[in-house]
């Protein structure tokens, strides 16, 4: 697995009697969109948190770019190139769009302990922030206050902030949520372009979107991955049909 950017090896996490992650293994390869699906309560969020660094697994390991990152925290993993977007937009709502993007650029530049130079006059930071905003099509809104953006625009900004880090892999938690058909389609196209740069691990509820854009899909049920494969494999897999797609699809 030389082309694996991110691999999760047999991780376990339990909360009391609940095995939220029950020996999960998963890998993200160069150039792919790998979607993670599963019914509510399957342990998707727990898994994402462990990959991002917010939660430490009880056992097992996580490798990123060939290094064991299991013991690193969120900030350290981000600096190594793990870009993340959230299900519920995690943005500094009082900041302008540009300030949010500059915040990303600050993290990437390592300039965070510069206490006396104005951030919003730093050309390198601004260039990097504006370039990312342009890629997601938010350059015209750079002075808007983030709290005033539409839901879709916030999602775009999330991606832009992640882009400022020049990530080696993306971790996206339901990027399509609440986007509407049009926005969803545009984002799908954008993700296809983005995956050439860095592979994307996508958690998504919207099945149509998943089937339209994923190269591979893993299905998580009760803390276990019951199947991993291409879109066709997953569609054809009887276990998945029963567990996730519902009986009516099976008939």
């Amino acid at each position: 697995m030389t082309d694996s950017i991110l691999s999760v090896r047999n991780i376990r996490k339990s909360f009391g009697a609940l095995n939220a992650s029950d020996g999960i293994s998963l890998d993200l390869r160069q150039g792919e969109i790998h979607a993670l699906i599963g019914p509510n309560g399957a342990g998707k969020s727990t898994l994402i948190k462990q990959i991002a660094g917010g939660l430490r697994p009880d056992s097992g390991s996580i490798e990123f770019l060939g290094n064991d990152v299991t013991r690193l925290n969120t900030a350290q993993r981000a600096r190594r190139g793990l870009g993340r977007t959230f299900q519920i937009s995690a943005l500094a709502m009082e900041y302008t769009v540009l300030e949010n993007a500059v915040l990303g650029a600050i993290g990437q530049s390592g300039k965070v302990f510069r206490l006396f130079t104005p951030a919003m006059k730093d050309k390198a930071l601004l260039d990097r922030a504006r370039e990312s905003l342009k890629r997601v099509g938010l350059e015209a809104q750079e002075n808007a206050i983030t709290a005033e953006l539409s839901h879709g625009q916030r999602r775009q900004l999330e991606v832009a902030v992640a882009l400022t880090l020049a990530p080696r892999a993306f971790l996206m938690d339901e990027p399509m949520a609440g986007m509407g058909a049009e926005g969803s389609k545009a984002l799908t196209e954008f993700l296809q372009e983005l995956k050439q740069e860095a592979p994307i691990l996508l958690v998504e509820h919207d099945m149509d979107a998943v089937f339209a854009c994923a190269d591979r899909i893993s299905v998580l049920v009760y803390g276990k991955i019951i199947a991993t494969g291409t879109v066709d494999d997953i569609r054809a897999n009887p276990e998945v049909r029963v567990a996730y797609l519902g009986e009516e699809d099976a008939i």
Binding site: N73, A90, I106, G107
Partner: peptide
Amino acid sequence: LALNGAHQNEERVQTVG
């Protein structure tokens, strides 16, 4: 910017490293 950003959304600031 990072200090006030973390006041508004801690997770966001952590996620940019």
